[in-house]
Design a protein around this nucleic acid. Structure first.
Lengths: 248, 248
DNA sequence: CGAACGTTTGAGATGACTCAAGCGTTGTGG
DNA sequence: CCACAACGCTTGAGTCATCTCAAACGTTCG
């Protein structure tokens, strides 16, 4: 039940019944966190990892003026900071964006799992590498796309991830982020995010209002953000696939 | 001998003698590759991973106009595309930048290792998460730093990584990249990279000429790029540490 | 009702880009 | 051994995307 969305709809790693039972048994506690709360800080030694059950969380790095760069967001089903199991400490901070519920898994349990069940351990490894693949897509976004492309790419990605988790129908989903959050994700200013959102709205590509994203033209939005869902390793991703179109 | 530099000087994961022997035994072949050769393409099913022994390699994503964004570079000691073991296919291309030598490790061997030696398997996992930590630093670089900061940050990072591998004295190292490579790494144009390099040279922070990087003022360079080596998990990183200074 | 927060819009500044051209070095074939 | 092509580096001039600063408006919540 806690693990219902974990690795859901990912190619080649569907969890067997026994594995799911084992993972459920590893949960020591369920916690609720308010919106905008820090959960872990860079450098702290950690002894547990957390499965996100509900809510949106973020991982970020601060610059020397106190501005943030988000390096990841997490949606329900993600195994948060599983990275801290091999690494022991994190290189970044983790915080909630919206109010969230997490299932706590002590590292000692993951230890036990990796000795008992190499196949399940490999699926946990896979989950962390999916995060790395998403990091790479974010690098592409920041390095090669203009402001409109970055927002378009992010919205397509989030649509796809929520679709895999069963939280988007492929066109429409709840997302309680502010324009300032989008700015910290896309390396832009809030003001400019606002102008881009207006443009996307006026062109009919996407409307983001009252914590609801409605994609008007997925094909055009994906083209604008040069988005291809391949890196998310989603099984049955037909509703997300679009014809590749030339840029602009 | 192939694994001499693998995880060298990383906190908490020094390889035991027996582990090193096991890993050496897993190498099926050693290959040489010329400069600028593609080694693996996105989407291809892979059945082996490679330990980089000598040379510089890159991982990149193409945009729709054929421009590249590099998402990682690899230096000797890195386990290239170990990601492909859990993921089966990669989401990006891998290519040499300079002529390189690699030790091939079949996935079947990694499979055997993860059943036989959970502790060593966890060190392999750790190595892939180090890549992810570096991705996050690159995200910070692209999202929050200006052109000069990006180049400064990249040069500090590369200095630190080569230092860990025993290939930099902490101030001076060989690096056979072109300004066009730096542009693809930092999300800039070649022309602008050239202007930034001149500026760094004129300010005495760093000279990059004839495939040799000489850092004139590491403290100032690190401050300019807001670089802190923590995310590289390097043991005995004193020569790399600098006082944190306000930006600019 | 007022404070806090998020969104929206305008005007002007600027960092990085584009286009264009020249220079130096290296490697190769005649 | 020279000529020339290929490549990488360098510089200039003009343009444009995004930022900064500033202010106003709407909504929510206590």
């Amino acid at each position: 039940m806690f693990t219902e969305r974990f690795l859901r709809n990912r190619r080649g790693v569907s969890l067997e019944k026994a594995e799911r039972v084992r993972l459920e048994a590893a949960v020591s506690e369920v916690r609720s966190l308010g919106a905008r709360k820090t959960m872990a800080r860079a450098g702290e030694p950690l002894h547990e990892s957390n499965l996100l059950i509900d809510g949106i969380m973020s991982r970020y790095l601060d610059d020397r003026q106190g501005l943030r760069q988000l390096v990841a967001i997490h949606v329900p089903g993600d195994f948060l900071d599983l990275h801290s199991f091999p690494l022991k400490t994190l290189d970044h901070d983790v915080a909630t964006l919206t109010a969230s519920t997490i299932a706590v898994v002590p590292h000692s349990e993951i230890d036990a799992i990796s000795a008992e069940r190499p196949a399940l351990a490999r699926k946990l490894w896979y989950a962390t590498l999916l995060d790395a693949a998403i990091h790479r897509a974010w690098l592409f976004r920041l390095g090669r796309l203009d402001a409109t492309g970055r927002i378009a790419h992010f919205l397509c990605e989030t649509n796809a991830r929520l679709f895999a988790a069963g939280l988007s129908d492929g066109r429409r989903f709840a997302l309680a982020l502010t324009q300032a959050d989008l700015a910290e994700i896309c390396g832009l200013t809030t003001v400019h995010v606002n102008r881009v959102m207006r443009q996307l709205r006026e062109e009919g590509l996407c409307v983001f209002r009252a914590s609801l994203v409605e994609i008007g033209d997925l094909e055009a939005l994906a083209a604008r953000g040069q988005f291809d869902p391949g890196y998310l390793y989603i099984e049955n991703d037909e509703p997300l696939r679009t014809r590749k179109r030339p840029f602009r």
